[in-house]
């Protein structure tokens, strides 16, 4: 028996919109810890890890660990039928091949049940070790999205370099090149507008902009994005989900062939 009630149902809608283009099918895992997902894109270049902690739900019942294979495009279609203010409850049962999404209006005057078919997904689960990063950049998520979009119109890859001067985003394409530097800037009044750079060592890595631009679909989930970089490791682009958990995107760097 599974019953997860989320007052702020819009969070789940936003999570789906953030990952459905990167990953088409995935197993959602439900345990006492929370509702989670780990999945790679079809090219195995990027990985998304989502956690919505059980404490963040209004009601969380998960009698035993359950894995639900879901086509994310279909789930997104169903969640789009929920109103922006609706409360969403996810219901499932052991041994059935469906999951039900229940949408309740704030005033409780409209209740909808959408039943979706589950599927068997043979997914690989990867162990992600804790790592020390050479540099961690925290910046407004909208600013990061803007940079990725702008650079994506010029080139295919972005070189992200962190030095004590700041964080530099560089691309080159057929039409020319572009270089954007963001310096550390702390805003006391609005900490979410700050750019904070923690650097242990300078680092410079190259990534495909197509993936970075896909990650920025999570911008609506958090005002701040954290970018963790180390040579020889995938970059982690993390959006915290208010008081509930996070969505982390891992992207393998490009190297000189």
């Amino acid at each position: 028996m599974l019953e997860l009630r989320l007052i702020q149902g819009s969070l789940l809608k936003k999570v789906l919109e953030a990952i459905k283009d990167l990953v088409t099918e995935a197993n959602f895992d439900c345990s006492a810890t929370g509702f989670s997902l780990q999945a790679m894109d079809s090219s195995h270049v990027a990985l998304v890890a989502l956690l919505l902690r059980s404490e963040g739900f209004d009601h969380y019942r998960c009698d035993r660990n359950l894995s639900m294979g879901i086509n994310l495009n279909n789930m997104s279609k169903m969640l789009r039928c929920a109103g922006p203010e609706d409360i969403i409850t996810i219901k499932g049962d052991d041994g059935t091949d469906t999951v039900t999404f229940m949408f309740e209006s704030q005033k409780q005057d409209k209740i909808s049940d959408f039943e979706m078919k589950l599927m068997d997904i043979d997914s690989e689960h990867l162990g992600i070790p804790d790592a020390e990063y050479q540099a961690i950049v925290r910046m407004p998520s909208a600013e990061f999205a803007r940079i990725c979009k702008d650079l994506g119109s010029i080139g295919d890859t972005v070189v992200i370099s962190v030095t004590k001067e700041g964080v530099k985003f560089f691309t080159r394409g057929d039409v020319g090149s572009a270089n954007i530097v963001c310096r550390q800037n702390t805003s006391v009044d609005k900490p979410e507008d700050s750019t904070v750079i923690e650097m242990n060592e300078p680092v410079s890595l190259t990534f495909a902009l197509r993936y970075m631009n896909s990650f920025t679909k999570a911008t609506t989930l958090s005002e701040v994005v954290t970018i963790s970089l180390s040579s020889e490791l995938p970059v982690v682009v993390e959006y915290k989900i208010a008081e509930m958990g996070y969505i982390r995107f891992y992207l393998a760097p490009k190297i000189e062939d």
Binding site: A46, L47, L233, P234, A252, K254, I255
Partner: peptide
């Protein structure tokens, strides 16, 4: 020429 690496090169299977 640049080569795209895969995630599984960095993270091991559970």
């Amino acid at each position: 020429k640049q080569k795209q690496q895969t995630i599984s090169r960095f993270f091991s299977h559970d």
